[in-house]
Nucleic acid binder design. Sequence first.
DNA 1: GCCGTTTTCGGCCCGACTGTTTTCAGTCG
Length: 599
Amino acid sequence: MRYTEKNPPFRMSQFSLFYAGQPHPTKYDCMKNEVIASHFEMLADLLEIQGANPFRIRAYRNGARTISSTSESLDDMVSSEKDLTELTGIGKDLARQIHEIVTTGKHVALEALRKEIPGGVLDMLRIQGVGPKKVSVFFNELGLRSLADLKAACEAGQLAKLKGFGRKTEESILQNIDLAAKQSERVSIAEARAAAEAIVDDLKQQAEVEQVSVAGSCRRRRETCGDLDILATCSDPGPPMDRLAAHPLVETVLQRGDTKQRVRLKTGIELDLRVVPEASFGAALLYFTGSKEHNIVVRQRAKDLNLKVNEYGVFRGEEQIAGRTEEDVYAAVGLPWIPPELREHRREFEWADAGTLPKLVTVVDIQGDLHMHTTASDGAATIEEMALAAKARGLKYIAITDHSKRVSMANGLDAERLRQHWKDIQNVRARMSGIDILCGIECDILEDATMDLADDVLAEADWVIAVLHYGLKQPGKQIMKRLMAAVKNPHVDIIGHCTGRMIGRREGADVNFTDLLKAAADNSVMMEINAHPSRLDLDDIHAAAAKDQGIPIVISTDSHSVNGFEVLEYGVDQARRAGLTSEDVANTKSLKEFRELLK
DNA sequence: GCCGTTTTCGGCCCGACTGTTTTCAGTCG
């Protein structure tokens, strides 16, 4: 099983933690949901190599998905003796295993399998075109235990001698084996969208092409994408495939069939183009957008109605009864159209059945941006330049929130400079029309759980964002002590980029969201979705949990220049994935209404 | 391994592409 986007629900950073060595998290003082999920993913991989019952394997993967979609920490659920089997896909046995992992730090079932199958064997699954069956043959018949072993065996021509293997397989493995490490890398949604949308725009130039759309995880607006999917309708698939093959972003064509072409882009990411007849566009778009888990439920529902859904349409017997649009496919199985951002098999079907699908927030709903920097700290533009740029983008109000002094590298402000800065802001505000400017501060929560600026200074601010920048690797207890102190500080309005993670580069702090969100709700503190594509912090799961607590969410760009506002859409996408409506997002309100939400 | 107002047993989504094959298994999405 390759770790593509449809497969693992756990984070990229967990991925490396997972394969680099022990799956046991020594750095945490509680067991993270993602880590438990990664245990079950690994167990599923090992069982697959062993040739276990595929439905048993799927049960482990389903369990892993549920776990990583659960905001409440399983650690807490175990210690408060909650019934884990109430989680979808968690039955008696998985509940028992979770309990074991949390209470003992051991996972007997996983450890037993790991003894039988070395970690290097699992690495082979990451090679394109190599799955559990082939790996099983490599390990059991040739005794290969690592990628290096496999490479040597290919070079020695050992593989081609095996039954069912040939020269081409050997060549393909040799070609892809060095890419195996790179394959696991996912690109940010920003990078994914840029590439996919460029190619979509190009395909639209092809006269024969009728409709083109981005699909896949990119259309669902996941934080990162493992590959790209594009769907087109055309009576003849040839022209769009030729055009894609010749596109300057494309490096090589990996596969080409009658309806499907797979290419590798120069950036290393792979892209699938699928060409279908117009009567199938909706069905194919649904199928190609995923998620896999969402599609399985749709197909199951069709089956219950004696219908069949595939990428060509909805069929009753031989007769196609829907497929031209996504709306008619959903309608055929008794569902309203579900926005792509919600298609993760979390709560969307429950909402759809109850008629309570949220009307998701959009970029045009956003009226204010409440996190940005100027030349006073590490920004590239002045107060006035930022305000003009914000106004040009249609914003009605902004908050200037430069860094506090602890962030010395960014020229953070002490009390004296900050007070002068606020005077400068007030001067700009006085001479500008059409946009309001709040005097804010992005104040560090120091390692010892005190604030970087004194209360009397914070009290003068219109808007205080409290953030962690340093000491992110502190034990969870200390992290929580810091966050709780900030939440309880009477002058703090919001927690910014809560975990401090940098997607794909840096693990976030060990935050207990159950405790934090409860405290935020009790103390009328808002939570930020930082829109920068490398942060997107809160993530979708925790933003949804914040909404459940009634906590107002603010989507902020954290702009450091006049171009910084462009990332707003990524923050909105994250909010949409969390199921947030404009009601849930505080900066969709007018400044007057927004101020009423402040404590 | 999970699940269930038809079920506590018998189901568990569906098709394209490739390579190795004379009809299919493995992989992938």
